[in-house]
């Protein structure tokens, strides 16, 4: 088990493995997203309350889930890198941050577009949107701290520490925002959430989630590979390549 851990942690091994996996995950992402788009836009019936406007959940919900997943993954990778001093883990953490920030931004943007017909305003202080906004700042803080350090090793450790402290804080932030929102909620606001969902609305959503997951994995592997290239530029195995 330990050996496997270390073998996977070795950059050359990862570099080759990811090279083989990227086309498969990329292809799966393309197929799944296309199928889910067709299902979501054409096959699924319109919502009795929100009409066709609800269809934006096929982008909003998967991006929101991916953004949270990305933050957790970033913190786990950074923690692994800090504790076991595995350089590849730091490379993964560095690679995942901009992807997570993009998904967070996408979730915010789609939430706000959805808000216009639902609430008549581009922005409402809805619990989920507010949490996503804070999450976006957590990602931006992580990326700015990393960018502020010249030395990659120091940047890895400093920003990794921030991610670990952040991930302990994320549930507290989330629940405090939900609690705050439940106290101040106005009567007119329809909660941004799952509408009463039926089977033919649900399967495109789940397919889209799987598609986003595959897309996430593909981009993550591409970005980590380029991180590895940058970090290992002086090592022998790269010269041999």
């Amino acid at each position: 088990m330990w050996k496997l851990f270390h073998q996977f942690g070795s950059p050359p091994h990862f570099y080759r493995l990811a090279g083989h996996l990227i086309p498969w995950f990329g292809g799966a992402a393309l197929v799944l997203i296309l199928v889910a788009t067709y299902g979501g836009l054409v096959l699924a019936p319109a919502d009795y309350q929100q009409g066709d406007g609800f269809r934006i959940i096929y982008v909003h919900v998967p991006s929101a889930s991916m953004s949270l997943f990305a933050y957790t993954l970033m913190a786990v990778a950074a923690g692994t890198g800090l504790i076991w001093r595995i350089k590849l883990a730091h490379a993964v953490a560095a690679a995942v941050a901009p992807i997570g920030a993009s998904f967070t931004f996408l979730a915010l943007a789609t939430g706000s577009i959805w808000g216009k017909p639902m609430w008549g305003t581009w922005w409402a202080w809805d619990a989920r949107l507010t949490s996503e906004l804070i999450l976006l700042f957590l990602f931006l803080g992580y990326m700015s701290l990393r960018a502020a350090y010249d030395d990659t090793g120091k940047a890895d450790r400093a920003s990794g520490l921030l991610a670990v402290v952040g991930v302990v804080n994320v549930p507290i932030i989330h629940y405090s925002v939900v609690w705050w929102n439940s106290l101040h909620q106005g009567a007119t606001i329809i909660k941004l959430g799952k509408p009463a969902i039926t089977g033919d609305m649900l399967w495109p959503l789940l397919t889209m989630l799987a598609g986003f997951g595959c897309y996430f994995a593909t981009v993550l592997m591409i970005r980590t590979r380029s991180q590895v290239l940058q970090r290992e530029r002086n090592s022998r195995w790269l010269m041999d390549l």
Binding site: F137, L138, L162, V165, I173, W179, W180
Partner: peptide
């Protein structure tokens, strides 16, 4: 940069304190 790092983490304190 310090504020960017700390303020998001401090939101729960603000929420509970003000509430």
């Amino acid at each position: 940069l310090l504020s960017l790092l700390v303020l998001p983490l401090a939101t729960p304190i603000l929420i509970f304190g003000a509430r």
